[in-house]
Design a protein around this nucleic acid. Structure first.
Lengths: 336, 336
DNA sequence: GCGTTTTGCGCAAACGATTGTGTAAATCTC
DNA sequence: GAGATTTACACAATCGTTTGCGCAAAACGC
């Protein structure tokens, strides 16, 4: 009972209907009444019905060959294992499908060599455009791709003046800083994440500014960089506390780093939030499920992905869209 | 200084060299000395050098049109936000790239409608094969795709007798059961995950068998199903404890569910592992970073993805590979 | 009722690769 | 050194679309 699935071509439709391939092609590619431009109402109806009946679906590689538009968009992320990027990608994928595009995504691990190699691979595949979730502040690799004339947009991290869909990380950092200032913290520390990521840079900057406005300066020794995951947070927190200079607040620029830090604080017998306030970033599901619910910043990750695609489509269409800056929200729970 | 990147074609190479396109094509497609079949050593050298110099990269859609091999593999997962599937996908992507394939991945959310729609989309894109990470035990959708003649392999979850690369979940469940029996637990409960997933089914079965062999039967009321995440674990654990029948061990078939359950246990003032032992599954990084390090099962997720691709390649090549059953390992930490 | 416009479609040339077949010249066989 | 074989390529068809151009017949204008 398995239906014959010999892939059906335009030619087969044309032969079956007794019209020419060109007519079939034009009719099937014109939505609604626009098809009247290419045939009589009766013919159009016949063509559409028959295509439907035969289960016609155009061969994208053939179309692509002719039109030199592939309907493919390449996505680079540091790592899909990272919940934040995975969520952004879900937004990208959702919006892409809605617009008839296919995405393919790959991990760069933030390694410039891999970024170049993967970009090249995508360009070789003739993508219509690219989305970078792993841009570095120096935007070297992104520039190279842009120079080749590939339309691209950045998500998650901004860089240079490439079009981007990001969250306002300076504001996010500021919200955290102001919250900690309000609750009387005077000796804050920051687990900053990777120095090459605008997310780290901007969140730190926002928090530093907020404290500065309250007359509190954060010494360099209390700002420590490291990977954006639990292990990274643990190591950074240990490094911080090893200095002997115990802070009364820790702002981890990522929820997972915060969870890592939480473990270290417990191990040292420090109470949260009584001895040390702890704030994360991104409002990961685990943030609320963790033993002591984490105060954090909610950022619209899914939406960021969607907007990224929309910007890219504008760009491909020849437009010059403005960057998108989404708004973060402070979520106060129990750790600060 | 931006190098002219007018995409260079075979014809351009041929014209530049004064040979025919066919020769260029054959030479460039033959590795090493195999090319001697198609031209003199000198010509071959000239062609390769020139192709290199001009930065030639073949147009995959043109090649695909001719050969009807796309070099594309479609991957369906329940959700990339899930760390386990994201890791498996990393393995898939890595192995795919090594073999000159490109993958595109999409979330089905375990919804059969979405599974059908996305499969169709991939078939329309003329994928060479598919990898399902979201097969249901009833294998309805997978069967439909298989009937269309698309080579496919399953990862993570087995189903029917489709070729699959999975972990031995019955053994994994058994390891957990035996460990709990050894430590004297007699009233175990299981947070089982989704009933349609073989992972849930098999892990439960393994644990049940292990207990049965020790003369302990687990009543149906202490096996509760639910989603594989922290919130799901929380809800399932609450449901379990609401029954008033407090177990002395909980086997969560997923680390995130275990973390959710951990919160519930704490809230009720139950000590882990003294009052209740807790075991997770998959050895997620968070499992060791969490406040009280989680006893869990380590499963080779990355490797599973890699093996999946290798199986698919065999299948596409006309082989009929045997399913791959990888081995789980018990990791005893502090919760059981 | 004769030009002019519109309607309704078909022809054929691309797009860039792959690959079966053909064929000069060079080399070998004895 | 004549025939057989091998070497080193070239020709041209083909994959399934898209799209510029062309052209009958019908409809229209006056």
């Amino acid at each position: 009972m398995s239906r014959r699935r010999e892939t059906v071509t335009l030619r087969m439709l044309a032969d079956g209907l007794g019209v020419s391939v060109s007519t079939v092609s034009r009719v099937l590619n014109s939505p609604g009444d626009a098809a009247l431009r290419w045939g009589s109402a009766a013919t159009i109806e016949r063509i559409r019905a028959y295509a439907d009946e035969r289960g016609y679906s155009p061969n994208p590689q053939a179309a692509s060959l002719r039109t030199s538009r592939s309907g493919l968009v390449g996505v680079l992320v540091p790592r899909l294992q990272d919940f934040v990027l995975a969520t952004i990608y879900e937004g990208i994928e959702e919006a892409a499908v809605e617009n008839g595009l296919s995405t393919f995504v790959t991990n760069s691990l933030d390694d410039p060599g891999a970024q170049r190699a993967r970009s090249q691979m995508m360009i070789d595949r003739r993508v219509d455009g690219m989305i970078f979730g792993d841009a570095h502040l120096d935007h070297l690799v992104v520039d190279e791709v842009a120079d080749r004339g590939v339309p691209l947009v950045l998500v998650s991290r901004r860089a240079g003046d490439h079009v981007s869909a990001t969250c306002d990380d300076v504001l996010g950092g500021r919200l955290v800083g102001e919250h900690l200032v309000r609750s009387g913290r005077t000796r804050p520390a920051i687990l900053a994440g990777q120095a090459f990521a605008s997310t780290s840079h901007d969140r730190v900057q926002g928090a530093v500014e907020a404290f500065a406005e309250a007359g509190i300066e954060i010494p360099r020794s209390r700002i420590v960089h490291g990977p954006f995951d639990a292990a990274g947070g643990r190591i950074a927190a240990e490094q911080l506390l090893a200095a002997g200079d115990v802070p009364d607040a820790i702002f981890a620029t990522n929820d997972f780093a915060a969870i890592g830090a939480l473990g270290v604080l417990r191990d040292r017998g420090l109470r949260v939030p009584d001895d040390v306030a702890l704030v994360g970033y991104n409002d990961t599901p685990l943030a609320s499920e963790i033993l002591v619910p984490l105060t954090t910043i909610r950022s619209p990750m899914h939406e960021m992905g969607r907007r990224g695609v929309e910007l890219l489509i504008e760009l491909i269409g020849g437009g010059s869209p403005a960057p998108e800056l989404l708004e973060p929200v402070l979520v106060v729970r129990e750790t600060a």
